[in-house]
């Protein structure tokens, strides 16, 4: 499944994931291409979040879980013993469903990722903070109030702040888990614009419940059901001429 001969950024091979005895991912094999947006769609509970969270090993912190199969980023196994999970998460950023800024100032929210990596130079930090906020299309709105608490922002602004925060550590991949489900339509449009723009520099994987959103922002779409990958193809193909009956039923709204 690589017609344009794109570079593969992420590859999951025969991925199984268990929460205790509950098998949430079943033999998922998929490739996400470099500097493309890959959307993951599927009915609630089908394992979208579980899948996307395996990519930066966020599931590691949940006790009683088990993963089988392989995930390769740039061809390297992210579960290899010499892989530092902290370093992996720096390379694979994540934006969550609900905006989750820290209870700190706008500035400190973004500087956090830099400071934990040992950056001390104030000028440099200020520079990156501005660049990240610009990158998340938030700079103009907050440049005069960088010391205000992040909670003083609107929900949509908070979500863009979280995106800026993720950008600040210069990841290669950004994972979005339903980034727009807790914000209003106008804010959603802004975040979508942003994602469109981000793919010039980053590989993006986005989970969404919103079919139009998947169609609008993504280049490739994966349809999952009950922990299995049902179909994966170019987004146009999935939305105009899906190969699988289940996919067709889902995107035409016959279930889900």
């Amino acid at each position: 499944m690589n017609p344009e001969n794109l570079q593969v950024k992420i590859k999951a091979e025969n991925l199984d994931f268990y929460y205790g005895a509950n098998r949430a991912l079943k033999n998922v094999t998929i490739e996400c291409f470099d500097k493309k947006v890959t959307a993951i769609i599927g009915p609630s509970g089908c394992g979208k979040s579980t899948f996307i969270r395996t990519l930066n090993r966020m599931n590691d912190v949940i006790p009683g879980t088990r993963l089988e199969g392989k995930i390769l980023i740039d061809g390297a196994d992210i579960h290899a013993p010499d892989v530092d999970v902290v370093d992996l998460r720096r390379r694979v950023g994540m934006v969550f469903q609900k905006p989750n800024p820290f209870p700190k100032s706008i500035f400190d929210n973004i500087a956090y990722g830099l400071r934990i990596n040992g950056m001390k130079n104030k000028r440099k930090i200020e520079e990156v903070v501005e660049r990240s906020l610009r990158g998340a299309a938030l700079w103009e709105e907050v440049k005069d109030r960088l010391n205000d608490n992040a909670f003083s922002l609107s929900g949509g602004q908070q979500q863009r702040l979280c995106i800026a925060r993720a950008l600040a550590v210069e990841p290669e991949v950004i994972l979005f888990d339903e980034p727009c489900s807790a914000i209003d339509p106008i804010a959603t449009a802004k975040v979508e614009d942003l994602i469109e723009h981000l793919k010039t520099r980053y590989t993006v994987v986005i989970v969404t419940h919103n079919m139009q959103q998947a169609a609008r922002v993504s280049d490739y779409t994966a349809f999952m059901m009950l922990g299995e990958l049902v179909e994966f193809d170019r987004t146009e193909k999935i939305f105009t001429n899906p190969a699988n009956k289940l996919t067709e039923d889902y995107i035409t709204g016959r279930f889900g």
Binding site: R89, N100, P103, Y112, I116, N117, V169
Partner: peptide, 27 residues
């Protein structure tokens, strides 16, 4: 302290220790 703070911190590449000291304890 909301679990979301800890997740956000870990996802940025903070260690558990950094997350505790810089996010959870201040919160």
């Amino acid at each position: 302290v909301p679990a979301a703070y800890g997740e956000a911190s870990l996802a940025l590449g903070a260690s558990r220790w950094q997350t505790l000291v810089r996010v959870k304890l201040p919160a």
